[in-house]
């Protein structure tokens, strides 16, 4: 806690951003995000949209895995449900875009709850298995339900529109993603610091004790599945808008693992974790891309450099993080801040 910060009421004690210093930097950051599309190249803009979508997805996953302790290896499949639900509602059923977006979230939440039902009886590894099963079953359904999803050929996504905004324009889509990412971040933060969040953390840390002190395990586990899948559905719907043509290949188990890796690198059980993890992941990916372009020009006959280098580096990063910084970047950030505040008298 910074020196000279005294709370005189519960209200001020409960504030999320406590000092003017943090608040002003937050405003600078948000303003920076708001003007970003006018400053960066088209390519960078699309990367920013992808990152925003990943942040929404990661908050959902973090809520489920980081705060409730339910390992999910099927997050990308839930995003797929959202993507197809939104595109079908908006494109084929003619529902306006915003209700379709929310509807997609709701449909995904329902599907998530169905696969969450076994979670009452399952823990740890067995639950991870149930989510792997969800991943494969959903992927199969997308691939084979040709009439609804277009099967393996994929589906063209009707661009959403809201008043004067058309979301096939990347600038408009960027703002939509930005606003939703902001809303989801705030929602997650508020879920986590309220009664429900404390219940989730209690379940994660020792579920028997939680049950004894009166936390309804089934209700809260199902709730965390529902909210997590709702966010996944939103992220999926946005991803569909971004990709314009969706196939089952955008929602495989490899993507599920990627999202889990982002959350772990950022820090499970920290709100900042999702954001840091996504930022780290995307920056590393860009660096590798530059590196492989250089390698490719040096050794032009090695076409698979990027794929293999990407896999190896990300694998190493995941393992090294788990061994040396298991609490992720968010914990590291906290240590750095504490060090900085106390410097030079850290005792």
């Amino acid at each position: 806690m910074p020196a000279g910060l005294f709370h005189e009421s519960y209200r001020s004690d409960e504030r999320i951003f406590q000092t003017w210093f943090v608040r002003s930097w937050l405003i600078v950051f948000l303003l920076g995000c708001a003007v970003a599309p006018w400053l960066v190249s088209k390519y960078m803009l699309s990367i920013l949209i992808e990152a925003g979508i990943a942040i929404i997805a990661c908050h959902g996953l973090n809520l489920l895995t980081g705060f409730t302790g339910q390992i999910s290896l099927g997050h990308a499949a839930f995003m797929g449900v959202g993507a197809y639900a939104c595109s079908i509602l908006n494109g084929q059923a003619g529902v306006p875009f915003v209700p379709a977006l929310l509807g997609a979230g709701a449909v995904t939440a329902l599907v998530g709850m169905v696969f969450g039902i076994p979670s009452l009886r399952l823990r740890g590894l067995y639950l991870a298995m149930a989510t792997i099963a969800a991943q494969f079953i959903i992927e199969f359904t997308i691939r084979r339900w040709d009439r609804l999803t277009g099967g393996v050929e994929g589906m063209y996504v009707e661009p959403g529109k809201l008043g004067p905004f058309y979301f096939n324009d990347h600038i408009h889509l960027y703002y939509l993603t930005f606003i939703l990412a902001l809303a989801v971040t705030m929602a997650t933060k508020n879920i986590v610091r309220a009664r429900s969040g404390r219940a989730l953390v209690a379940i994660r840390d020792r579920y028997l004790a939680a049950e004894v002190i009166g936390v309804n395990l089934f209700k809260y586990r199902l709730l965390s599945f529902a909210v997590s899948s709702f966010f996944a559905g939103l992220a999926g719907a946005l991803l569909a808008q971004y990709l314009e043509v969706i196939t089952h290949e955008s929602f495989t188990i490899l993507q599920s693992i990627d999202y889990l890796a982002m959350c772990i690198i950022g820090g499970l059980g920290h709100i900042l974790g999702g954001i840091f993890g996504v930022a780290f992941w995307f920056i590393l990916e860009r660096i590798l891309e530059v590196l492989t372009t250089m390698l490719n020009s040096a050794f032009p006959n090695q076409v698979t450099w990027f794929v293999s280098l990407r896999e190896i580096v990300f694998g190493l990063v995941i393992i090294l993080f788990l061994i040396f910084e298991p609490d992720g970047l968010a914990a590291r950030w906290r240590t750095i801040r504490a060090y900085w505040k106390l410097w030079p008298f850290s005792y």
Partner: peptide
């Protein structure tokens, strides 16, 4: 071995990290 005693998620994730590396090496 460095992860003995860590929570399940870390251990699962390490094996998943391993899948990335092995896949990358095989493709390379």
């Amino acid at each position: 071995r460095p992860l003995i005693g860590e929570p399940i998620i870390s251990v699962i994730m390490v094996t998943l990290g391993l899948t990335y590396i092995l896949r990358g090496v095989v493709i390379m």
